[in-house]
């Protein structure tokens, strides 16, 4: 076999490995937005195992990973009422919505015979920051310094103008100005100012 054929074989093999890898461990983040417009508790399940429990007339927002390349396949979602009865099952297609930076899996559960809940408040939010570390941290929203959060403490900033997309603009820095990564989710009642929760931790200080 000539050197040219070997080289061509290696290129093809490398291409196949990369093509296979494109499909493996390749993740996309989606914003999961669940709005419960009913007067009962509900539980929403994705992937048959991730369960989100909501109070009556409430909203939860979380990030969830899904296939990284367009599959054309929706997310299988099931909704159960407080009594355990299945209210709905559907394949939800992600969509692009204003106020979100990622594709949104929108699950809206309406009340039969008209909405039982207040209208959602939009365009403003409270940023609730929980510091699980033992050092003070400074919170930034874009270029704006919101303030500090004491060790093992929680502080609410706002109301601030904006949407869930603004959570991506939050930066948390410790005393040495090092960025700290964080978790974010939202949970609030319809009619209330949306509450976006951010939490972070760090190793205990050396003693």
């Amino acid at each position: 076999m000539g050197a040219g054929k070997i080289a061509r074989g290696l290129v093809v093999a490398a291409f196949l490995v990369i093509a296979a890898g494109i499909l493996a461990a390749c993740d996309t983040n989606y914003d999961l937005v669940i709005e419960n417009h009913t007067d009962q508790r509900i539980a929403v399940t994705l992937y048959d195992r991730l369960v989100y429990e909501l109070q009556p007339c409430s909203v939860q927002i979380a990030s969830i990973a899904g296939p990284g390349t367009p599959s054309g396949k929706g997310f299988r979602v099931s909704v159960r009422g407080g009594d355990g009865a299945t209210l709905a099952q559907a394949e939800v297609q992600p969509q692009r919505l204003e106020g979100y930076t990622q594709p949104v899996i929108l699950v809206r559960i309406p009340q039969e015979g008209g909405d039982a809940c207040p209208a959602p408040v939009e365009g403003v939010f409270l940023l609730v920051v929980r510091n699980y570390s033992q050092t003070e941290a400074t919170i930034w929203l874009g270029d704006a310094r919101l303030g500090t959060v004491a060790p093992l403490d929680q502080t609410a900033f706002g109301p601030l103008p904006g949407t869930w997309a603004d959570v991506k603009r939050v930066a948390i820095r410790d005393a040495s100005n090092t960025l700290i990564s964080y978790s974010a989710r939202a949970e609030y009642s319809l009619g209330d100012i949306p509450r976006f929760f951010i939490g972070f931790t760090a190793p205990r200080a050396r003693q």
Binding site: A65, P70, P103
Partner: peptide, 23 residues
Amino acid sequence: NTTGWTWGNTILILESERNNRPL
């Protein structure tokens, strides 16, 4: 359309997700 991609011990993460701890 991809946010994170892992190859062995190499992790590729979208720049905008630098602070995303769960990811």
